[in-house]
């Protein structure tokens, strides 16, 4: 398979060059001319992005390029330094109740004697005060666990489950409130390869079957490649947005970074990016030059 033989673009795809304001109301996430700063220093600028309902999007890029920063902007935790953003047609943060959020992988101590099912349930009512009413939401918890195929081990202590099993239950916890958007920070990180593939397939299934918009940060695009509608590739303080086959090309990435970058495609369609300026220290230096 060659990179030029990209799959036909769907009608849902919004071109990078299209004015975003037209689709502002139906977009799940929308950014225009956006700049994010951390400690007074721009992480990325002039980012334009529009994600439609039911899309599966991966946020890619080297360490320190601002992938998690984008999640924080969309969750309303970090206000934009410039530009505009909306989530589900409202200000970021206002739609929090309709977003399921899975932070970067948490480790559960082997000695934690709490069942997986109780952890999922906390996603539903853990933030409420007062005594719990057990019967309420029991069906919702069971459905969420069935959705991630974790029924078999959901009643075992969470600390004694494997990384992949824990991750499925955490996805169920994020899904239990029936959110319209699922935002995940490196959900494949520290999973072995079979589990990376399986969790990617699970997220794609949830996205398509339940109509949940899935937005995730990933380090390696390959386990996700066949499922993705869109990628946001951060680098050198900018972002390239489009289908994977559009963005992960030597041309787009070289333009993004301003250095020569090669994209290799293996016989089975896996992509490898070579020549990225990886070192974070080098990167933060680049940001400053790019801001001129």
């Amino acid at each position: 398979m060659n990179i030029t033989s990209a799959p036909p673009t769907t009608d849902r795809r919004i071109d990078v060059a299209l004015p975003g304001a037209a689709g502002q109301t139906e977009a799940v996430a929308w950014l225009e001319g956006a700049q994010a700063q951390i400690a007074g220093r721009a992480v990325w600028s002039e980012v334009r992005l529009e994600i439609g309902a039911g899309e599966f999007t991966a946020i890619l890029g080297p360490n320190g390029s601002g992938k998690t920063t984008l999640l924080r902007v969309l969750l309303g935790e970090l206000p934009l330094a410039a530009g505009r953003a909306s989530v589900l047609g409202r200000d970021p943060g206002a739609a929090k109740g309709q977003i399921g959020y899975l932070p970067q992988r948490r480790h559960f101590d082997a000695g934690i004697r709490i069942r997986g099912v109780d952890l999922v349930r906390l996603g539903l009512d853990g933030a409420r005060w007062g005594l719990p009413i057990r019967a309420l939401g029991r069906d919702r918890v069971r459905e969420a666990i069935e959705l991630v195929c974790a029924s078999e081990y959901a009643t075992r202590p969470i600390g004694r489950l494997s990384g992949g099993e824990q991750q499925r239950l955490l996805i169920a916890q994020a899904l239990v409130t029936d959110p319209r958007v699922l935002i995940l920070d490196e959900p494949l990180d520290s999973l072995d390869l079979p589990n990376q593939t399986a969790v990617s397939a699970l997220l794609a299934r949830i996205c398509k079957q339940q109509g949940v918009t899935v937005l995730l940060v990933a380090h390696d695009v390959n386990p996700l490649l066949s499922y993705l509608d869109r990628v946001v590739y951060f680098g050198a303080g900018r972002a390239a947005v489009g289908t994977p086959r559009e963005v992960i090309t030597a041309g787009t990435l070289s333009r993004l970074y301003g250095v020569r970058i090669e994209v290799l495609t293996t016989a089975d369609g896996r992509l490898f990016v070579a020549g990225l300026p990886e070192a974070p220290a080098h990167h933060s230096g680049r940001h400053e030059h790019d801001e001129q």
């Binding site: 934690i112 005594l131 719990p132």
Partner: peptide, 20 residues
């Protein structure tokens, strides 16, 4: 009885509890 559930949430799963 009043804070038991949020306290449990914060004890087991601090990051998500804070996000919620």
């Amino acid at each position: 009885a009043l804070v038991g559930r949020p306290l449990l949430f914060a004890s087991v799963d601090e990051t998500v509890a804070r996000a919620r």
